[in-house]
Design a protein around this nucleic acid. Sequence first.
RNA 1: GGUCGGUUCGUAUAACGGUUAGUACUCAAGAUUCUCAAUCUUGCAAUAGGGGUUCGAUUCCCCUACCGACUACCA
Length: 519
Amino acid sequence: MTRKTRVRFAPSPTGPLHMGGVRTALYNYLFAKQRGGDFIIRIEDTDSQRFVPGAEKYIIEALNWCGIVPDEGVDAEGNVVETASERHPHAPYRQSQRKPIYRKYAEELVEKGFAYYAFDTAEELGAKRAEMESAGQTFIYGQTTRMGLRNSLSMPEAEWKELLETRTDWTIRFKMPENRVVKMDDLIRGHVEVNTSTLDDKVLWKRADELPTYHLANIVDDHLMEITEVIRGEEWLPSLPLHYLLYEAFGWTETQPRFAHLSLLLKPDGKGKLSKRDGDRLGFPVFPLRWVNAEGEVSRGYREDGYFPEAFVNLLAMLGWNPGTEQELFTLEELVETFSLERVVKSGARFNADKAKWYNKEYLRKKSVEELTDLYIPVLEEHGITGVSREYVSKVVALIQERATFVADFWDIASYLFVAPVTFVEKDAAKFWKEENYTLALKVADFIMNFEGEFTKENLEGPLEEFIRSNEWPMGKVMNCLRLALVGASSGLGIADIVTLIGKDEFARRIEYIKATLK
RNA sequence: GGUCGGUUCGUAUAACGGUUAGUACUCAAGAUUCUCAAUCUUGCAAUAGGGGUUCGAUUCCCCUACCGACUACCA
């Protein structure tokens, strides 16, 4: 029987989702959609200590912004989403709300002899660990040490049963088998083997808060939610043997999901994985959306920095995956069609901010003038420009679209089309505003002022250049003098374009102004 | 320290064991233009090191080096 593809993204709400997490979610989503399967969001909030208010909402919003919407899970308001599964009672999707489910599974493992009760307190263990470390050794709670610790394996039955009743701080630990080679298969990494003798007895369930740890919750929920593939970060590879053993202990090997471990996103320079600090240090966002933490510290987001979600998704997809062709630009739909785990790269990908900008620039070029005009108008308003017609703004957009990376760049590129320059770039003025140039330029200005036809680029450009040429004046010097007057610098659009946009009156004003200002 | 994973231009990556090791970003130069941008052309630049296996290794195996993850009653 082939099962319907069901994958999950299972973030922990301990803070904002960073771009590596978004990539993991994206790969899960692409995999599911390509196979006509379900993409599920499950919130792994079994650690009450590290819970951060607002983090869950942030995660859902961030994924929504990217177009990664779940078939099942929770929405930004915290409501259950379950579009695909009238026959599956999979809710709830927050592990804290699934609390009652886990205990019996943990106890089942004890009964079958795969786990045991442990009564050592966190403090005792911490002390032991510190003691051994200072002696240069490593402490692990496992097969070599467990009989010397306080648990249902090492203590007389009456004694531990007494503790089980009277104390509320015990845990259930997995009894790691001795000297067994666990053979695993990873969809990205291939075959991996680990000897269980190097592994420790992980805590599965805690009596104190009656919650499972990641390992137990993960296996139980993946099983109950009928997950077929687990696509997650590389940090989970070391616990894969434990997970295999858990499926085996529960007798669920038949339906055990297949695993794929994704490599990490690395910092652009130096060593280590990409962290929040790198963004601040190198000046690019690490998070999809802006995030303000409890201390009021602000982390910038791709959305607020002006990235289009399509560009963000595209660049993330290409960080660790490639289609095997030379195509670099993909819509989400195209990614759904093309994506494959086989082409996911094993090694860690270093994030590159320049390439990220390039993607945005490409997407900006593809946008319609209409859409960009909508986005540009608020930017203009922020700069106090309000009385301009939409038609005028559209004309400007059409001329500057391919020169920008972000919509916010439009202002720097074209502010002179909305307000007259009041200062002139010193270097440019020194270079071009010389008497032998500007006397000619002013004559050209007169030519423009006396131009009879309608002011359009097509009408003006030819005669204007012809006029300068026929007088044998230096084209570059003359034009740049005019540009200095119109732009305030010797860079910008063609003179005919500028004059056409700002019109005859404004043109005259700017000429008078520069004459007065620069003598 | 131990376990596991990884290593192709600066970065992202391509190359069924047979290529002048390709592409994109960045950078540089040139072309074009009234300037700038855009565009086009060209260029710089890589298989970590050492052993095998093979007629032939970027590709398969081993060792070394380096990088990373994990080694919590966190996920």
